[in-house]
Design a protein around this nucleic acid. Structure first.
Length: 304
RNA sequence: GGAGGAGUAGCGAAGAGGCCAAACGCAGAUGACUGUAAAUCAUUUCCCACCGGGUUCGGCAGUUCAAAUCUGUCCUCCUCCA
């Protein structure tokens, strides 16, 4: 099986800088594992790696989407698998770096997404939660039991899955093995939450200084709200400011709070969905982080 | 010095005698997650506990079977007039 190294963890722990060092030490190339860094023009707010920080390491799947294009796990899965193939063929180690848990898992596990056209509209959007949930229950009760009635997106998607496949989501999942299709090592960076929150707040302030507002304004003007890119934290919060509904200070605070909650969700995901080998970064300097990572990776690397 | 107004859980803010451990929002905590995932959704947050119990609504003292809600007094803050 092909080897794949994953560097994951919550936002703002230092995945990017570690990834460069490991890529150089392990002769690797980096593949983006982050749902928002695929977009052009979204650099500051997504904390995307800067050109001069890449240090000669090749990066894949960054900056290839226009702002008005949508994006999804299925597309990501397909692209990443191609890249893993491509990098491996050069005899280099593919290193996935990112914090979007579902994307990482979907790419590396045998999640299957049906090849499909554009979204078919089944006219579910204007129905009430109760109505669509009742519909799902009648179609595919097994899946309905796993989704909360208020979770419209999931309920609707489950109905779509049923219509498109003639079989329910739960039954489809049963056909999968739920194991990785590569020889994967999950390396995670972790840090005390409170400490992380503090670093996040500082980083947000720094982003503002670097011109985040102008960047967001550009993105805002070249897309529209339902679009994927304007759902990014650090962007959507400023819509109210641009429309004169909230002060700038308030919006900046919202960015910080939303990022805190995002971190929380990321931890929940990583802790419960995949077996991450954690490096606790709290009292380590950057060299020590690299060393701890290499210690953990020893068997994975030598097991070639 | 005079006239008004306000003090409610970490913050904001409802409640104006029993249905109040106290709505709602925010922040915090926990969880779910297979095509929007930086998305979406659920649970939880005075204290101890399994039923249940113990302390709360600026302080103190009253009225009442019953007080966050009524009375007195004190403290703090705000606005206006001097």
């Amino acid at each position: 099986m092909q080897k794949v190294l994953v560097i994951c963890g919550p936002t703002c722990v230092g995945k990017t800088s570690l990834s460069i060092k490991l890529a150089k030490l392990l002769n690797g190339e980096i593949i983006n594992g982050d749902s928002m860094q695929v977009y052009k023009h979204m650099d500051i707010g997504t904390a995307k790696i800067k050109e001069n920080e890449k240090d000669g390491v090749i990066h894949h799947l960054f900056d290839f989407k226009e702002l008005d294009e949508s994006y999804s796990v299925a597309e990501y899965q397909k692209l990443v698998r191609e890249k893993i193939e491509e990098v491996s063929n050069k005899n280099k180690l593919p290193i996935l770096v990112g914090g979007t848990g579902l994307y990482l898992k979907a790419a590396l596990y045998d999640y299957s997404f049906k090849e499909k056209e554009d979204h078919v509209n089944y006219g579910l959007e204007d129905k009430s939660n109760e109505e669509i949930y009742a519909l799902l229950s009648s179609l595919d009760n097994k899946t309905a039991k796993t989704i909360h009635i208020n979770n419209r997106k999931r309920v609707i998607r489950a109905i779509e899955i049923y219509y498109e496949n003639g079989i329910g989501k739960e039954d489809i999942n049963k056909l999968q093995t739920h194991s990785p299709i590569y020889d994967v090592y999950y390396l995670g960076l972790r840090r005390d939450r409170k400490e992380l929150y503090k670093l996040i707040d500082e980083r947000v302030d720094q982003m503002i200084k670097e011109g985040l507002i102008n960047e967001v304004k550009y993105v805002y003007e070249h897309s529209s709200y339902p679009s994927t890119c304007m759902q990014a934290i650090g962007y959507k919060e400023f819509i109210d400011y641009f429309e004169g509904k909230a002060t700038l200070e308030y919006c900046i605070q919202r960015v910080k709070f939303n990022t805190h909650q995002y971190v929380k969700r990321q931890f929940t995901w990583f802790n419960h969905q995949i077996n991450v080998n954690w490096v606790d970064v709290d009292n380590l300097n950057s060299d020590e982080i690299v060393q701890s990572s290499l210690d953990l990776l020893k068997d994975f690397i030598n097991g070639k």
